[in-house]
Amino acid sequence: MGDLFTLPVLLGILYSGIRLATPYLYAAIGETFVQNSGIFNLGVEGIMLMGAYVGFFVGMTTGSLWLGLLGAALVGLLMGLLMAVVSVTFKAEQGISGIGLHLFGMGLSSLLFKKTLGGVESISGFQPIKIPLLGDIPLLGDVLFNHNLLVYVAFLLVPIAAFVLYKTTFGLKVRSVGQNPQAADSLGINVAQIRYTTVCIGGTLAGIAGASLSIALINLFQENMTNGMGFIAVALVYFGSWRPGGVLVGALIFSFVNALQLWIQVKGINLPSDLAVMMPYVLTILALAFAVRRARQPAALSKPFERGEN
């Protein structure tokens, strides 16, 4: 066991954990906006897959990763818009339409992959950028400040999202729409407009989450490559009590423990691999059970707003 907690291992966990957390951060921060406005979008996974595909395909065919990123954001926005039409305008059951959106994204991305790429190929994704000065800090510099752009942006999103949600008028409107849409409506806030905006923000970020995998971290596209990340992102929003800071803590715990369990195996510590693989999930559930206050859930979460009802 003493072999495990050496400096190189801890630095390795830090490095891998930061990379693993990146897609979760985009997707879960996006979903934080969505859920704070009272919409429950379970289709994040499907949007991520479409984002991953479009980011990769556009990046590869045009040779521009930026266009790929833009494409992923756009397709995310469009799928967010679709979810908003269904859940806000048509007031559909959100859990069901979210599952529909997931299946839609999964099926369409697989179909397009088959028709356009046919097989797994890799591209050269966003390269690591070493931040001047900070990147030169001994040991930690390389681990914390030598990542690709999308990793930095994911972590920067946390304070930005917190600022927008808690320090701006827009954020106040989002939260009031999520807590009590009737009251917000009576005060002249356009509930539908706010919800459309947040669901589109969530979609865009989920699209970028997918692209962070396909053109920045893993640099290839494979069918169903997100492998359930979108659902974990939705769970992280609950874990984080609908606050960006909490989401960050959840994403980091999950990712660090995942990185740790890989090291436990690599170091040959005598623990069955099945148990090691379970660790991040078990720990997240334990943390959820013991540490999280449930009181902060937006009161109107997943309830369609009907003017004049209640």
Partner: peptide, 24 residues
């Protein structure tokens, strides 16, 4: 050094496993 990801399809964790091996 041997590690298992517990999944046939988790590309992301497999990449992290390879990173870990190289770091080791």
């Amino acid at each position: 050094n041997i590690s298992y990801t517990g999944s046939f399809s988790d590309v992301s964790l497999m990449a992290a496993a390879a990173e870990t091996h190289i770091a080791a």
